[in-house]
């Protein structure tokens, strides 16, 4: 419990058409890599967006780094504080199109952190080389491949030395031959001890890199288990069904 970094309690969210997340709970230890699996429409993205305040939940609370947050009506100050300690990687990268790769990484440091340009750029270059893009600092997003853009996005998320990074299907917008470079950056990040919450369809990543798997359906947790156990001996019938469909696809 002492290592508990994130704990979500009673998260619910509905859109006009009905409940998307129902009384969802999750706890993440420091250094944990958690894979969130589930069929399309299970509410994985919505859960991740509610937890990162990109969407307002109907109800729910969260304890992050020892501080309690309301997920339904957080204060501006709380949201800013949370953002300083976390990073988010989007499915579609969402890079700033009017900034170079380096500019994307330094923007938050310069504007939100008030870091000097020189320090920010030094740090930015270091991060770009960690994701293997040291020679692409001056390229604009439109000049980069999808895999390169996503790696810039990961460097951008790492810039604030976050305690935790959220990923929403970071490889599913990529051509299959480009997913490897992104996954290997994520694997390295995991090995360096970063706490990560990753929504993914990459079974290899879930099985080999993540410590735990949370399987969601219809806005609820169906099964949660250490990765090895989840894949070798799942408990729920529904989980077995899901796994066999996925395995048959591959």
């Amino acid at each position: 419990m002492a290592d508990d970094l994130l704990r979500v309690n009673g998260l619910s969210k509905s859109f006009g058409n009905g409940m998307v997340i129902q009384d969802f709970g999750l706890s993440v230890d420091k250094g944990d890599v958690i894979a969130i699996l589930g069929p399309s429409g299970a509410g994985k993205t919505t859960m991740l967006r509610c937890v990162s305040f990109l969407e307002r939940a109907d109800s729910g609370t969260m304890i992050f780094d020892g501080k309690e947050y309301s997920l339904s009506s957080p204060s501006r100050h709380d949201v800013l504080e949370f953002r300083k300690k976390t990073g988010f990687v989007f499915q579609n990268y969402n890079l700033f199109l009017n900034r170079t790769a380096l500019g994307n990484v330094t923007e938050g440091l310069i504007v939100a952190r008030k870091m000097s340009r020189k320090d920010a750029e030094e740090k930015g270059m270091e991060l770009l080389s960690r994701v293997g893009l040291q020679d692409k600092g001056n390229s604009y997003p439109s000049e980069l491949s999808g895999g390169q853009q996503q790696r810039v996005a990961i460097a951008r998320a790492m810039a604030s030395d976050p305690l935790m990074i959220f990923f929403d299907e970071p490889t599913s917008a990529l051509d299959p031959e480009l997913t490897g470079e992104v996954l290997s950056v994520m694997r390295k990040l995991a090995e360096d001890g970063m706490t990560m919450l990753v929504v993914t369809h990459e079974m290899g990543f879930a099985r080999n890199v993540s410590d735990r798997v949370v399987f969601m359906e219809e806005g609820k947790v169906v099964e949660e288990a250490p990765s090895e156990k989840f894949f070798s001996s799942p408990e729920k019938e529904r989980t077995r069904e899901f796994l066999s469909t996925i395995m048959n696809q591959n």
């Binding site: 990109l54 953002r83 988010f88 923007e107 996005a153």
Partner: peptide
């Protein structure tokens, strides 16, 4: 493209920034 605004929020920028 709207996603850039959310990305900006996530790196701690304010709406005006």
């Amino acid at each position: 493209p709207r996603g850039q605004m959310e990305a900006g929020e996530c790196v701690g920028m304010t709406y005006l920034q």
